[in-house]
Simulated scan of single mutants.
Amino acid sequence: MCGRYATTVDPSLLAVELDALDETDAKEELLPQEAGPNYNVAPTNKVLTVVSRHDRDHKDDEPQRRIRRMRWGLVPHWTKPDAPGVPAKGKPLFNARADKAATTPSFRDALKYKRCLVPMDGWYEWLTEPGAGGKAVKTPFFMTPKDGSRIYMAGLWSVWRDPHADNVSPLLSCTILTTDAIGDLARIHDRMPLIMPQGNWDSWLDPDHPAPAGLLESPDEDIVAQLELRQVSERVNSVRNNAPDLVDRVQPGQIDVGEQISLL
């Protein structure tokens, strides 16, 4: 699964790199970590996504890549409002199984024509092992490209509108697809986010055609082999911690300065 990740790219830079339109709103109200580098992205945070859509006024034109911010935790378009302009609360749908998305009511509509990419520097996962007294010990790892590049995860997105509140802006939200973990990743967790290779981006983002079934399968092992599985500080366990050193490597048994302070 993927329940935390790190991302440091600026939307304007991402737009230039991907030849995309930057449709993020500079005036949008954001949390401090959402407005800049976020080393501890958590569900319900607003995150950057890449979509491909036709121009609203020129639907016959070729679709264009666009950078948009969305709530991480998909809200299906049929969700009932809990208050004017506010969708009913429920468990955040931040992950979706790739092998079941086509038949799951919350995701099947989005899988057809609302697919996205979620850029990140890497994601966190916890290795669970038995500890003293039978208590489980969870060790955090950061999975990131060895060459320092960015990775893009396959995602789905949705637009939620309150049918009774016309003056409220629609809510854009997304989820990250997951598959069975492969290679060394399987030693840490049995699930992994679905990495989408650049050669498949156009097919995945195509707003006019369903995605080829093969794109929903686990990535090739050579893609996973390019990742570093880096043990990191347990401070990442708390979403209140958000700093560049969260992605730094720690050696097994090592306690970093931040953890020493918290133990005093």
Rank of each mutant, 00 (worst) to 15 (best):
M192W: 09
L21I: 12
D82C: 12
F142G: 09
Q198W: 07
R108Y: 02
L194I: 13
D206I: 03
R115V: 08
T79I: 10
P119C: 01
W204K: 07
K91A: 12
E62I: 11
S169V: 13
S233L: 04
P163C: 05
D10F: 05
T103V: 01
G258K: 14
I188E: 10
V250C: 14
D245T: 15
A35S: 06
S158Y: 06
K112D: 01
G133C: 13
S169K: 15
Q198G: 06
D99I: 04
R65V: 04
V75E: 08
D184K: 15
P140M: 03
D99H: 05
V232Y: 02
C116P: 08
E125W: 11
P219N: 13
E259T: 15
V51L: 03
L111E: 07
V9M: 11
A211T: 10
G214S: 11
D25Q: 11
K46G: 12
P252Y: 12
V41T: 08
E234R: 15
P76M: 07
A211D: 11
M120K: 00
K138M: 04
N40I: 00
A213L: 15
A15Y: 04
P207W: 01
A83R: 06
K27I: 05
L74Q: 05
Q231H: 07
N241L: 09
N237L: 03
K80W: 03
S173R: 06
K146R: 14
R230D: 09
R56L: 14
R4A: 05
D166M: 13
T79V: 14
V75S: 12
L18Q: 03
G134T: 02
G155Y: 00
V232Q: 01
D220F: 07
G199R: 15
P81V: 13
Y124P: 03
D19Q: 09
Q260I: 13
P212V: 05
A211P: 09
Q251D: 14
A35D: 11
E217N: 14
N45E: 00
L18T: 01
S218T: 12
V250R: 10
N241C: 10
R97Q: 12
F94N: 06
A225S: 14
K114I: 02
R187I: 07
A96W: 00
K46Q: 14
A26Q: 07
K100V: 11
M143V: 15
N40R: 06
S169D: 15
V250N: 14
Y5P: 08
